[in-house]
């Protein structure tokens, strides 16, 4: 197992390197160097910067030097000093802009994955074990709706219902008094109270997808001879099913960890706009529109790293779950 983890970590390095190259290329995409764009941007807003500041910037990011050195300065700045560069739209270091949003996005993803699991697990098992029962048909129908109706539409409907019947609005992830408060237990509770609805909506299509996969996998596994062995040794039916075929059909659950994050980043942009969620989606969209490249590149970098790590964790869990992967 240790050597498996070690090999996985080694395999991660080139992927991470590639992700950093992509992010760096994105930063370099707009014409002219960053200092020039920065100046132009400020000038457009009727502001000026001193020549000194510009020179300092050029110096700090190695803008006069070859691309290789620029990349080196950029990446070591990130790794050793947590310096992601400057956002010229917000005129702040990128690092002070993104972390809150990234954490919130991760939380949202995590809660969303958990909800997805909690809902999909029993329904998927039920649908497979009771194939073609009325319940199976109903869940399949709901599943189709879950996959085909866009999340933002569901969000609008639910927000409307909530407003109409409960008189509250779920907009944003915090109540007004907590928006810019420091982190505290009360703020966490407030966050969780706001988080579950968007998490549920976000997880909707994923849940439907997961139920479908679990049902199909389990139907396959239920036909395997080892299930008969389990029954033939005298296990009660529920135990025979939960311990053996369900265990083997579980792989897609773990794999969700890997793919849910990238899905959320792209899929949640519209939803985040609709529900006014302070996640990375809207900020990323905005930064791309305004060519705020350090901001955009940094977010893409952090989110790719998170995705790679998510895949890593899900690979490890898969290996724990399935010895055939571990010993290959």
């Amino acid at each position: 197992m240790l050597s498996f983890i070690f090999r996985r970590i080694l395999a991660m390095i080139p992927t991470l390197f590639l992700a950093s190259i992509v992010a760096f290329v994105i930063i370099q995409l707009p014409p002219g160097d960053f200092a020039t764009s920065y100046m132009a941007n400020l000038a457009a807003m009727g502001d000026t910067v001193s020549q000194d500041t510009l020179e300092n910037l050029r110096e700090a990011y190695g803008l006069d030097q070859p691309v290789m050195i620029q990349y080196y300065k950029w990446i070591t700045g990130i790794i050793f000093r947590g310096d992601y560069g400057l956002s010229f739209e917000h005129r702040e270091p990128v690092s002070s802009l993104i972390w809150d949003r990234i954490w919130l996005t991760m939380w949202l993803s995590l809660v969303s994955v958990l909800l997805t699991w909690i809902i999909a697990f029993p329904i998927g098992i039920y649908s497979a074990v009771k194939q073609y029962s009325a319940g199976d048909y109903i869940f399949t129908l709901i599943g189709f709706i879950g996959v085909s109706v866009p999340a933002f539409l569901v969000a609008l409907v639910l927000m409307y219902l909530q407003f109409k019947y409960l008189g509250q609005t779920t907009s944003g992830l915090f109540s007004d008094e907590y928006i810019s408060a420091a982190w505290s237990w009360a703020r966490v509770k407030d966050l969780l109270a706001h988080l579950w609805l968007p998490a549920l909506i976000l997880g909707l299509s994923g849940t439907a997808e997961l139920i479908r996969i679990l049902r199909a996998n389990l139907l396959d596994e239920l036909r395997r001879p080892y299930v008969i062995t389990a029954r033939a040794k005298g296990l009660p039916e529920w135990k025979a099913i939960l311990k053996y075929p369900v265990r083997l059909a579980l792989n897609p659950f773990v794999s969700t960890l890997g793919w849910i994050l990238p899905g959320l980043i792209s899929g949640s942009i519209i939803l985040s706009q609709v529900m006014n969620l302070p996640t990375t989606g809207p900020l990323l969209l905005r930064s791309l529109q305004s060519q705020d490249m350090y901001l955009a590149g940094s977010m893409i970098l952090v989110l790719s790293v998170a995705t790679v790590l998510g895949t890593f964790v899900s690979d490890i869990l898969l290996a724990l779950l399935d010895p055939r992967i571990r010993y290959q």
Binding site: R224, P225, Y226, I228, T229, A230, K243, Y244, R247, L248, L321, D322, P323, R324
Partner: peptide
């Protein structure tokens, strides 16, 4: 092979 669970 298939009569025994591969993951236990």
């Amino acid at each position: 092979l298939t009569s025994l669970s591969p993951v236990h």
